[in-house]
C-alpha cells in the first residue's frame, strides 16, 4: 500500500511542471457579444461578492478555530442564542442578494428579447451534426466535426490529437455578419441537443418537435467555438459549433459562394428531413 501511495505521489509530482506550462484559462473566455459581455460582468461581480463573504465569514471561523482551542486553555462560554444578531445575519444576505438580482434581471430581459432581428437562422440538431438554414438568404447546409477519426482513436487504437482545434472544428462553419442581430430558431430532430457558444452568450437546447429561439450579435469579426451542451448519445462529445463572424461584404461573398455550391449539388443531393416521430 505504501508503494502505491509512493507511486501516486510520484505521478502527482511529475505532473507538477504542467502547472507551470498551463496557459491558465481560469475564467470565462473573452466575451464577444452584448449578452456575453453582461454575463462576464455579472459573473465577476458575483464572484467578488462571494469571495468577500467567504473571507469575512471564514476569517471569523478560522480565528475561532485557532483562538478558542481547549489546548490553549479556552473555557467554553454558555451562550446559545441572540435574537438581534440572528435577525441581522438573516437580513444582510437578503440585501446582498437583491444587489445581485437587480443587474441579473436586466440581463435576463435583454437575453430573452429576440424581437426585431436582422436575420434568422434555423438550427436543427441531429445525432450527431447540425443543420443550418438561413431563412433570409436561402443558404442551407450541414455541419459536421472535421477532426479526423484516427486522431480521436478508440480503445483498440489510441488516437493522437494533433490538430490545433482538435474537436472544435467543423467542415462547414456558421458564417454571420458582424454587428447584426441574429435570431436563432433552434430545434432538434431526434434527441435533445444544446447549441452552446459561450463567447456569444448562447446556450439553448434544441428540443425535438419544438422551436426555441435565442439571439446573438457578434461585436467584431472572429471565430467562436462551442460544443453541443446536452448529452445526446455516444457522439455527444463530437458535435462542435464554429461561428465565423465576418464583415457585411465578406458575408455577402460567402452567401454567393454557398448558393453556387448549393445549385451545383441540388440535383443529386436531396437529404430528406426524416420525420421526428420515426424512432
Amino acid at each position: 500500500m505504501k508503494k502505491t501511495l509512493r507511486q501516486i505521489a510520484g505521478t502527482a509530482l511529475s505532473s507538477l511542471p504542467i502547472l507551470a506550462l498551463a496557459n491558465y484559462d481560469v475564467n470565462i473566455p473573452a466575451p464577444h457579444s452584448p449578452i456575453s459581455d453582461q454575463i462576464y460582468g455579472l459573473h465577476m461581480e458575483i464572484l467578488w461578492v462571494c469571495l468577500a463573504i467567504f473571507v469575512v465569514v471564514f476569517g471569523v471561523m478560522f480565528y475561532s478555530v485557532f483562538a478558542h482551542r481547549k489546548s490553549k486553555g479556552a473555557v467554553a462560554a454558555h451562550f446559545h442564542e441572540n435574537t438581534t444578531i440572528e435577525i441581522i445575519w438573516t437580513l444582510i444576505p437578503f440585501l446582498i442578494l437583491g444587489f445581485m438580482a437587480w443587474p441579473a434581471t436586466q440581463t435576463v430581459l435583454a437575453m430573452k428579447d429576440a424581437s426585431n432581428p436582422d436575420m434568422t437562422i434555423k438550427v436543427t440538431a441531429y445525432q450527431w451534426m447540425w443543420q443550418y438554414e438561413y431563412l433570409n438568404d436561402g443558404v442551407k447546409f450541414y455541419s459536421v466535426l472535421s477532426t479526423p477519426r484516427d486522431q480521436i482513436g478508440s480503445t483498440e487504437q489510441h488516437g493522437k490529437p494533433t490538430n490545433e482545434h482538435y474537436l472544435l472544428e467543423t467542415d462547414n462553419n456558421v458564417v454571420v455578419p458582424v454587428g447584426k442581430k441574429i435570431r436563432l430558431l433552434i430545434t432538434a430532430n431526434d434527441v435533445i441537443h444544446g447549441w452552446y457558444v459561450p463567447q456569444l452568450g448562447v446556450n439553448q437546447y434544441g428540443i425535438p418537435g419544438f422551436i426555441k429561439d435565442s439571439w446573438f450579435k457578434a461585436n467584431e469579426p472572429g471565430v467562436f467555438r462551442g460544443q453541443c451542451s446536452q448529452i445526446c448519445g455516444k457522439e455527444h462529445g463530437y458535435m462542435p459549433i464554429v461561428v465565423e463572424a465576418k464583415s457585411a461584404e465578406d458575408y455577402a461573398v460567402w452567401v454567393k459562394e454557398q448558393k453556387a455550391k448549393q445549385a451545383a449539388a441540388e440535383s443529386h443531393d436531396k437529404v430528406s428531413l426524416a420525420d421526428p416521430v420515426a424512432r
Binding site: 434555423k122 430558431l185 430545434t187 418537435g209 419544438f210 422551436i211 429561439d213 421526428p276
Partner: peptide, 12 residues
C-alpha cells in the same frame, strides 16, 4: 398550445 404557436408552424 405551444405546438400550435407561430414559431412552431415551421415544424407543424
Amino acid at each position: 398550445p405551444v405546438l400550435g404557436d407561430l414559431d412552431n408552424q415551421l415544424i407543424w
